[in-house]
Simulated assay, not measured.
Amino acid sequence: MENIYLLLIVCLFLWYFIYLRKVSEYALRHIKAYCDKDGLQFISLSRSSSRLTFNKALGPHWISVFDFEFSGDRESSYQGQATLKGFKLESIHVPMYKI
């Protein structure tokens, strides 16, 4: 019986890892589209947090926060933050930057 629980834990861990990779790919796609739309140079992306939340309208869902670096003038870099609910982009916050 313990083997079944161990197998379940390993499967959940693998699913979570694969899910986070998929969310990171969607975040990269959303952020690159945002940078292309505004004429910014995309530099890098990193996930700062992911958490499971519960909502009456959506039920249980994951909220992931990503930090990304960009440049507006190709010389300096700035850091923005993107929030995803599941695979959908919820918001992007960028500081004022030099064009």
Rank of each mutant, 00 (worst) to 15 (best):
G80D: 07
H61I: 03
W15F: 15
G86L: 05
D67I: 10
I4E: 06
I43L: 09
F54Q: 08
E75M: 10
I31L: 10
L58Q: 11
Y16K: 14
K32F: 03
R47E: 08
A82Q: 11
N55A: 13
V94N: 05
L84K: 11
S50L: 07
L28E: 14
E90I: 03
Y97Q: 03
D36I: 01
F13P: 01
L20N: 15
V10M: 03
W62C: 06
R29F: 05
S77E: 12
L40N: 00
E75K: 13
F42S: 02
L8Q: 15
Y34L: 11
I63C: 01
Y5M: 08
I92V: 13
R51S: 11
C11Q: 01
K98C: 05
K88C: 01
S76G: 06
K85E: 10
L28P: 00
I43K: 05
A82K: 09
F66N: 03
P95D: 04
D38L: 14
G59E: 03
V10A: 05
S71W: 09
K98G: 05
Q79I: 13
S46H: 06
H93C: 02
M96S: 15
D73T: 01
A27H: 09
N55W: 09
T53S: 15
I43Q: 06
Y97C: 00
K37T: 00
C11M: 05
H30D: 11
K22S: 12
S50D: 02
N55C: 14
F54W: 14
Y16S: 15
L28F: 07
K56F: 11
I92D: 08
L8S: 13
K85P: 00
N3Y: 03
Y5C: 03
W62S: 00
I9V: 08
A27C: 12
S71P: 02
L89Q: 08
I18F: 10
